[in-house]
Structure formats: structure tokens, C-alpha cells
Simulated assay, not measured.
Amino acid sequence: MPSEERAEGGEDATEGRVLAGRYRLNKRIDEGGAGEVWQARDERLDRDVAIKILGPSADEAFRERFADEARRAASVIHPNVVTVFDEGRDGADAFMVMELVRGRTLRDVVADRGPLRPHEAARLVAQIAAALDAAHEAGVIHCDVKPANVIVDQQGTAKLTDFGIARAARGPREHELIGTARYIAPERIEGRAPTERSDVYSLGLVAYELIAGRPPNAEMETEDLLRVRLDGRAPSLRLARVGISEEIDRVVAKALARDPQGRYASAGAFARELLAASQRDDATGVLPPVTRPLRARGRREFHVDTTIALLAIVLVLVATLAIFASFQGRALDA
């Protein structure tokens, strides 16, 4: 995809292009610093797919790593992971072919709805955790877990995507700081290699954002944010949203521990504790329906019965007076 074409014609210059003689680009659905994502048609298998494209500005080393990570991501087969079908090159462009998920990112969900109920957030976190556990079992560390990289489809299934900067969990680990600063673990800021617990930290930040409705320290610039992440304590959900239980706050804070050894050993372990805590929190937060006490109903019925009795007494008195008046009238006539 030559940059001159993109500059002159924008999206129209690329729409309809066929990559590798097989994938026809139909619609650009996202773009960022690492490239673009397109909805495309696999004309060989007659199905819709999503394609991530690295443009000609990416250097050769990044292209090779992109292809390597596409192959690693393809090894992670799980219902909560966006499946990678293919990778290749077309001219100057490297591309990755993935499952097309029709839905919305968690970033968009939070932007539209604000904070989610803790139990709803925990169910989404549990699905992302299942995807991460599958990736870690396959030897892949994601390194960029964030709401924008989770798509929720029309059935409510969360799918983790964008393994483009993932790292091999087995073998040499790179120390280059790559990822989104707002969701990166403290040890990565220090230049240490990522581990599975680095992904747990990022998942903790996602959980925080879903429950609070915004990321921690949202008002900070990147430099200040990274400094606080290195020197400060784990952010507290109870300071961000009223009504959050101490248990939920404690579980999320453990996932966000400064020291990786202080975090949960796996994403699944974190998700299970968050689910349990949120279920207890939801149960205690639901007030029972207000019912009228039985004795109140009795008082009302007693009040009605008394009224009827009084009316009956009045009628008897009126009738008695009428009869008395009638007898008195007859006596006068006599």
C-alpha cells in the first residue's frame, strides 16, 4: 500500500485492493500507530475477515517481528481469543488475517455506559482471563491488554485481540518497552522482561476501569502516570466509586501490586476471586422488596369493620326513633 496512494486518495485509494491475490479490502475499521485494520473478504474461502496491515513506514525488523507474533498468536486457540488465520506480505505491506468479530470494544462500552456493575465487570474479566491463561499456556505473553483490545460480540462474548506485540514466554525475552503506557506494568517501565504477571497487572487495570468507569489517574499525563506507577500504592476502587465493597477493592489491588510476586499467579486466579467477591457484593447490595406488615392489614380491616358497625348502630337508632315517633303520633290522635 504505497503511502503516495493513501495520501492522494485516502481510504478510497485502498478500498477494493486485493492482498496476496486473495483478500479484498472493503472497509477500514480502525487505525493507529502500528497500522490499520480493515474488514475484508477472503475470496478463496468466501468469508469475511479482519486484516491488520503494517504500512511501508514500518522497518524490516518490525515486519519480521510482526510476522513472528502472528504465528505465535495463531497457536492460541480459544473461544475468547480472536483467531489468526494467515499472515503475509503484499508489496511493501505486511498483513495479518484474523477472525472478524462483529461487536464493540470494551473501550466503547465504558465510554457509552460508564461504570458497570461489579458482577458484570467480573464476568467480562473472567473471559479475558481465560484467553490470557490459554495464551500463557501456549507460551505467549500478550503485553498490551487494554479495553481497546477486547471486543464484545453480539452474544456478549469477550474476545481478546491484537497479539501484534506479544512476546514468547519461553526462550529469550526482549526488554524493549512496547505497549500502551496507561496499561503497562511497573516492571516493564523499569526495563525488566514481561512475564505472565505483567498481563495480570494489565488485566487488573482493565477491571478497575470497568468498575470505576475510568482508568486510575485518568487526569495525569504519561510521564506523571508512569512515575506514580513506580512510586505510589495500588489505586483504590473505593476512592473512585461509592459503594464498592472492601473485598472487591482488595482483590483488584492485589492484581495491581507493585511487586509482581505480590500479584495473582495467573489471570484465572484473579478472575475467580473477583467473581466470588462481586457475587457477594451484589447479594448484599440488593434490597428486598418492601412488603406491608400483616398487622397493618389487620388494622385496616379492623377500621373498616368498626365503621360498618357504627353505621349499623346509627341505623338502629334512627329506626327506633322512627317507631317511637309513630307510637307517639297514634297516642295523640287517640
Rank of each mutant, 00 (worst) to 15 (best):
D224Y: 05
F270G: 11
T180G: 03
D133L: 03
S57K: 15
G55V: 03
T284V: 13
E11K: 10
G32A: 03
T284A: 14
D249C: 04
L203W: 05
L160M: 10
S57V: 09
R229I: 14
P2E: 14
A207N: 04
P147A: 00
S198C: 03
E247K: 07
I248D: 00
A212W: 12
V286P: 08
F62P: 00
A331R: 15
R197V: 06
P79L: 04
Q279R: 15
R250T: 08
E11V: 08
V110N: 09
R17E: 11
Y208N: 11
A134H: 11
T157N: 06
A20W: 10
A265L: 10
H78M: 06
A166E: 13
R330P: 03
M96R: 03
L287E: 15
P79N: 02
R173G: 13
S236D: 14
A193P: 12
E246Y: 13
A296M: 15
A67E: 02
G179M: 02
D12F: 12
G243D: 09
A20C: 06
E64C: 03
Q127F: 06
L205Q: 14
D133C: 09
G156C: 01
R280Q: 09
A94I: 01
D108F: 03
R299F: 07
E246I: 03
G139P: 12
L311A: 08
V125D: 06
R299C: 07
L332Y: 10
F95W: 05
A319T: 08
A40S: 12
